[in-house]
Design a protein around this nucleic acid. Sequence first.
DNA 1: AATATTTCCAG
DNA 2: TTCGTGG
DNA 3: CCACGAAATGGAAATATT
Length: 554
Amino acid sequence: MLLDSVVAASADVAAVSGRLAKTDKIASVLREVPAEEIAVAVAFLSGDLTQRQIGVGYAALSDLLGPYDAEAGGRTAGIRQAATPALTLTQADAALGEIGARSGPGSQTERRRLLADLLGRATLAERDFLVRLLAGDLRQGALDGVVADAIARAAGVPAAAVRRAYQLSGSLAAAAATALGPAVGRDPAEAEQALLAVRLAVGRPVRPMLAASAPTVSAALERISPAAVEYKIDGIRVQVHRQDRQVRVFTRTLDDITERVPELAQAALSLSARHAVLDGEAVALYPDGRPRPFQVTSARAASQPGMPDRGERVPLTLFLFDLLHIDGLDLVDSPASERFARLAAIAPAGLVIPRVVTADAGEAEEFFATAVAHGHEGVVVKSVTGPYGAGRRGSEWIKVKPRHTLDLVVLAAEWGHGRRHGWLSNLHLGARDPATGGMVMLGKTFKGLTDALLAWQTERLLELADPPQPVATTTWRGVVPVRPELVVEVAFDGVQASTRYPGGVTLRFARVLRYRPDKGPTDADTIDAVRALWTPDGTPDSNLVNPEDARSAP
DNA sequence: AATATTTCCAG
DNA sequence: TTCGTGG
DNA sequence: CCACGAAATGGAAATATT
């Protein structure tokens, strides 16, 4: 099939707002795609490459096509373009694969040459689509969720069958190939049978179960009771597959990081089971059992074993909380209580997440307080009856974290994109510096803003713009500095070290709660107050705990 | 050795 | 993360 | 009430280029 057909379908999808209409349009084109090209078509239509990544990013695209030009609605700088569509899906996919296969010295130049070659064979519409695909910014209003429905529609099977195959195989393109690929005819009964035959495979990652959130433990217990209440560890999510003596470790996004975390594989070998698929969290701990800053865990999990590393290699500690498969038995559909009981039966106590099962809000709140006192992020409140509903942001799991807030000053704002076009969106946040009387920038946030708030802040910030903005001639792009007068209440998850900002610290996951018109810049929180919330690595605060305490529930 | 680019992580 | 929209 | 997609950050490591 021509790439152009998929590009045209994507444009149609972007042009309608309803999900059903989008599903319809994607299903229509999928019905026309030859069986052997289904995986490519589905990858492209859900905003992915079949190769995941190929070493082409924003810079390479800008070099080739010039910077994004808002007035023209795209990139205009010239490279050759095809007059008529000729590229097939297979050819485009193969060309992208060629680009990704390059490595070593000279590879960037070579990638750019190949990229120019590919884009030169594309029409304007195709080129625009490929650029958005490579930039990871399809913006057609449909990603894997909508495309999953479309696959079901095209194959004439229940959406649940596609979702299940997607969950268990970890790949939507694979699920689509199962339903519509060469191995099955275009017969709904056959397709459904093939989808239902997809099973969890040890060594192939499944999509991880996600959690909703609630402001307090009591609120979470109102939705789930009795519930298992578990420590929420501030590390990286890991899915561990053990097949005899072979172990593989996957991240939340299903990347294989086995080679980087040999100690986790080692830990998995201590389980009393030959085959197992487990879900858990890995974290770098201090000797006393408290968690190190997230940055330490993150850096540790990102570094290869053979690389010259600066500083010590802090080992990661594994906390397991779920079991999806044990010695030939799939547990994905079993109740959580059974999965955990089997986990506890095969895992040394030290590898299992601290938890309590309770229906008592007081007891749960107390456990939450203990988790936080031990330096952890909070707790996850889990149904004891639910299955492992992978990929669903359902309510079988609810996370609860303490909420920190600061009153900060808006120093500048940036014009928004997409549906925030024409609004001042991304806010530069500053804390008061009593030493200088000035403001210290701590980071930015665009989160937590309602449309009403966006409208209000755009008007108010333009009044405060310094120098004043000629609104009528504004390009709707760039940074608008403002007089530091507006105070905003911001929630955040923590304070972390920063090389980017002058204060040396920045906020993790800052989001706007509300404006504080009752406060002026002199009432804002100080940089000293922010720094006081930061625990640099190597100096765990004085609230020491016994290492055993961090591992075991009180 | 220092800098640029890409990718991946968290939510 | 949060929000708004669709269903 | 749930599912979905969009808003676009910031740190850090690996890999390439200078």
